[in-house]
Amino acid sequence: MIVAVCGGKGGVGKTTVALNLGAAPSTVVVDADLGMADLPADNGPTLHDVLADRASVEQALHQRGQLTLLPGGRSLAALRAADPAQLVSVLESLADRYDRVVVDCPAGLAADVGLALYAADRSVLVTTPDHIALPDAVRTRALVRVLDAGVQRVVLNKADAAPPTDAVREALGIPVEVLPADDRIVDATTAGQPVAVRYPDTAPAKAMARLVDAVFD
């Protein structure tokens, strides 16, 4: 199963959601932001090198704690060597080996988002509950629809005590999961860990667990 985590606006929490989905068994997380990687490699080959036929997928996989990660590259020169269309076959090859492939999509509606959605079986639409991010989520949903990567859940991230859950559900016609604005989620993401690992049995960990169950259901 290939799951694209997308959202349109940058900074809404796509990487946070992708990292936490990646904690599930037999799961690999792919940083598909070809221009500005959010999950870069400390060393060794990256997705850029795979897309440029300079490294195999196996060589570029990294293990970080319990996360298996195909990191993005940060070199623009290396990106120019890459063939972005190969992203689809890379994701499909990973799906042959792992039960779940979670794709952390970049912001915007460029081809690296489109290619991930093209390959994806389903998607998660992440947004913050504000008037800037929500319209971009609607635009992203239109692209998701064209590329047939059905949205499994909308994530209202960084939500306060009274998020517009019903309004978003009615506007998009998609079930909504809420992730609270919580420093523990931020801290776990900064550490590159799922919140359930860094802060087990806490309210944000439980909210994330509900989301993971809903997405992989």
Binding site: L76, L79, R80, P84, A85, A111, G114, L115
Partner: peptide
């Protein structure tokens, strides 16, 4: 789009122009 190349054609390549590198 029906192929990855169609996606690239429709959405534009994410490869930066040479001048930006």
């Amino acid at each position: 789009p029906t192929t990855p190349m169609d996606v690239l054609r429709v959405l534009g390549t994410p490869i930066p122009p040479r001048a930006a590198v």
